[in-house]
């Protein structure tokens, strides 16, 4: 399965809906999407990972890169994820402390902390 990406705007947040597998082959597409959004002035991103079947450290690296980019503009990058197998890799790497992870897009959009 390949990676699918779509974006939409809710208020000042840009939702990036990701589906499929994020690995060493597909992660560059996600990176390009995040870079493009930041270059276009979208600094408050919500990455919806509910449709993600697989995520590895390459994908984590891209998300960290996205976080660095939005933070350079006082922005935010929030994740939406309920899947235990995906959450596990965030826990293993200590990234649960770095990313705000929300159970739904609505909660991520409403979050302000």
């Amino acid at each position: 399965m390949d990676l699918s990406l779509s974006t939409r705007t809710v208020g000042d947040r840009t939702i990036v809906e990701v589906g499929g597998e994020i690995d060493v082959y597909t992660a560059p597409k996600l990176r390009e999407q995040l870079v493009e959004l930041v270059n276009d002035g979208s600094y408050h991103l919500v990455v919806d990972m509910e449709g993600v079947d697989f995520l590895d450290s390459t994908g984590l690296g891209v998300l960290v890169g996205g976080l660095k980019r939005v933070r350079a503009h006082e922005g935010s990058l929030r994740l939406v994820c309920n899947q235990e197998r995906i959450l596990k890799i965030f826990r293993i790497t200590g990234l649960t402390k770095v990313f705000p992870i929300h159970p739904s897009v609505d909660e991520a959009v409403a979050a302000t902390d």
């Binding site: 060493v24 082959y25 992660a27 560059p28 990176r31 390009e32 870079v35 450290s57 390459t58 984590l60 690296g61 891209v62 960290v64 890169g65 976080l67 660095k68 980019r69 933070r71 350079a72 293993i92 790497t93 200590g94 990234l95 402390k97 770095v98």
Partner: peptide, 24 residues
Amino acid sequence: GTGNGHAEAEGALVPGARGEIPEP
């Protein structure tokens, strides 16, 4: 593409490593 499809910022990803994210 941009030629960098690999892992980023690995230092922040090791448990116990610093929590802050360096500037790009």
